[in-house]
Simulated scan of single mutants.
Amino acid sequence: MTGTTPTDEHPEAYRLPDGYELSADPGRLDAARVHHWLSTDAYWALGRSRAQQDAAIAGSLNFGLYEATSGAQVAYARVVTDRATFAWLCDVYVDRSARGKGLGTAFLAGVRDRLAPYGLRRILLATGDAHGVYAKLGFTALDDPAQWMAYGER
């Protein structure tokens, strides 16, 4: 897939720039690179061990964005889902050298569109700094966040 196509459900879909490919093929993931990105440069995953990251990858639906000519991975997103009613989009990361080209928004539109056939009722995510990117794709703040609870690390 080289991009997303606007649909009635998602008229705001973004196309990947030429030269990039989105894939959910786990065999294409550069797990070492993903671990490095997240454990050294993602505020939510600093210090995450390689074993933890590998387990997270194994238990999730994973997406990569790749340069078509070299095959190098330039972005990653992980989705924890039952593939029926719910998904949690997490560990979204775009390599620093690839930022500022609209790749993140187009990549996330592609991930969102790849989840559409599951008929999920809700896709949740948490972000400390990318609200504007997700808002472009139809994500909104929770209507009543007081209904939601969390257990564990804050």
Score class of each variant (00 low, 15 high):
residue 138 G to R: 05
residue 61 L to F: 07
residue 133 V to P: 01
residue 7 T to M: 03
residue 96 R to N: 11
residue 5 T to L: 07
residue 13 A to M: 08
residue 127 T to L: 03
residue 98 A to S: 15
residue 127 T to A: 00
residue 92 V to L: 01
residue 112 R to G: 04
residue 36 H to F: 03
residue 96 R to G: 13
residue 48 R to C: 06
residue 147 Q to F: 14
residue 136 K to V: 01
residue 9 E to D: 10
residue 152 G to E: 09
residue 146 A to Q: 12
residue 63 F to A: 02
residue 144 D to F: 12
residue 64 G to F: 02
residue 23 S to P: 08
residue 31 A to K: 14
residue 97 S to M: 12
residue 62 N to R: 06
residue 18 D to K: 11
residue 19 G to P: 03
residue 153 E to W: 08
residue 16 L to E: 03
residue 130 A to Q: 08
residue 71 G to D: 03
residue 72 A to F: 03
residue 82 D to A: 10
residue 10 H to V: 12
residue 28 R to T: 01
residue 52 Q to D: 15
residue 78 R to Q: 13
residue 113 D to L: 13
residue 17 P to R: 14
residue 19 G to V: 01
residue 20 Y to M: 09
residue 150 A to R: 10
residue 2 T to W: 03
residue 131 H to Q: 15
residue 41 D to Y: 10
residue 82 D to Y: 12
residue 77 A to G: 00
residue 118 Y to E: 03
residue 18 D to C: 07
residue 152 G to R: 07
residue 104 G to A: 15
residue 147 Q to T: 14
residue 82 D to N: 14
residue 83 R to Y: 10
residue 69 T to D: 09
residue 154 R to S: 07
residue 10 H to K: 12
residue 58 A to S: 08
residue 99 R to I: 08
residue 71 G to M: 05
residue 89 L to H: 13
residue 103 L to Q: 01
residue 73 Q to T: 02
residue 91 D to T: 03
residue 137 L to D: 04
residue 89 L to Y: 14
residue 81 T to I: 07
residue 16 L to M: 06
residue 35 H to S: 13
residue 113 D to T: 10
residue 84 A to T: 11
residue 151 Y to N: 07
residue 121 R to L: 09
residue 90 C to Q: 15
residue 20 Y to C: 07
residue 72 A to E: 14
residue 126 A to H: 09
residue 133 V to H: 01
residue 78 R to G: 03
residue 6 P to E: 04
residue 25 D to H: 00
residue 106 A to N: 14
residue 61 L to T: 06
residue 29 L to V: 02
residue 64 G to Y: 05
residue 37 W to D: 05
residue 36 H to Q: 12
residue 74 V to L: 06
residue 101 K to G: 10
residue 97 S to H: 15
residue 142 L to S: 09
residue 98 A to F: 11
residue 37 W to Q: 01
residue 139 F to V: 02
residue 119 G to M: 04
residue 25 D to V: 03
residue 135 A to E: 15
residue 112 R to N: 04
residue 139 F to P: 02
residue 74 V to M: 05
residue 59 G to N: 15
residue 150 A to Y: 11
residue 114 R to W: 13
residue 15 R to P: 01
residue 8 D to L: 15
residue 2 T to S: 13
residue 92 V to H: 00
residue 75 A to R: 13
residue 21 E to R: 15
residue 19 G to W: 01
residue 83 R to N: 05
residue 70 S to H: 04
residue 28 R to V: 02
residue 85 T to F: 12
residue 29 L to P: 05
